[in-house]
């Protein structure tokens, strides 16, 4: 099952992205700052969507930490942020895509699908 990790301190924004991803059929993990997101990386998300301004560890610091770890450095990271001016051109390259808030959810979903493919159908399994 393809997992997507959503990292955002803003409750409403996070809920919106999580809902859209789950509707599409992705399995979603959640974290509310960069630090707790790093702890979730061992659950092997196929892709990460992160905010920039967050407490304890911001989205850029988190992305740099992920890139520095050879276990996860190929996991695509999408940045969604209102703080566009805070991201230098060089740092933008760390991210597979950058969306400015307010963002188009369908555009984000399209990018997720482009990067990791459609969600895998839930095979479920049978008892018999």
């Amino acid at each position: 099952m393809k997992r997507v990790l959503v990292v955002d301190d803003e409750f409403l924004v996070a809920e919106l992205i999580v809902y859209a991803l789950e509707e599409r059929g992705y399995h979603v993990l959640q974290a509310f700052n960069g630090k707790s997101a790093l702890a979730q990386m061992n659950k092997s998300p196929a892709l990460v969507i992160t905010d920039f301004m967050m407490p304890l560890m911001n989205g850029l610091e988190f992305a740099l930490s992920v890139r520095d770890d050879r276990n996860w450095n190929d996991v695509p990271i999408i940045l969604i942020s209102a703080a566009q001016a805070a991201i230098s051109e060089e740092n933008r390259r760390i991210f597979a895509a950058v969306f400015e808030k307010p963002f188009d959810v369908q555009a984000v979903l399209g990018k997720v699908e482009e990067l990791i493919g459609p969600p895998e159908p839930d095979r479920g399994g049978t008892l018999f």
């Binding site: 301190d9 509310f32 301004m53 407490p55 209102a82 703080a83 566009q84 001016a85 805070a86 991201i87």
Partner: peptide, 17 residues
């Protein structure tokens, strides 16, 4: 001034905490 957001002003939410 949107250019100050994320540079000199950090907006963070502690609602969930």
């Amino acid at each position: 001034d949107r250019s100050q957001i994320g540079t000199n002003i950090q907006f963070v939410s502690a609602y969930r905490e």
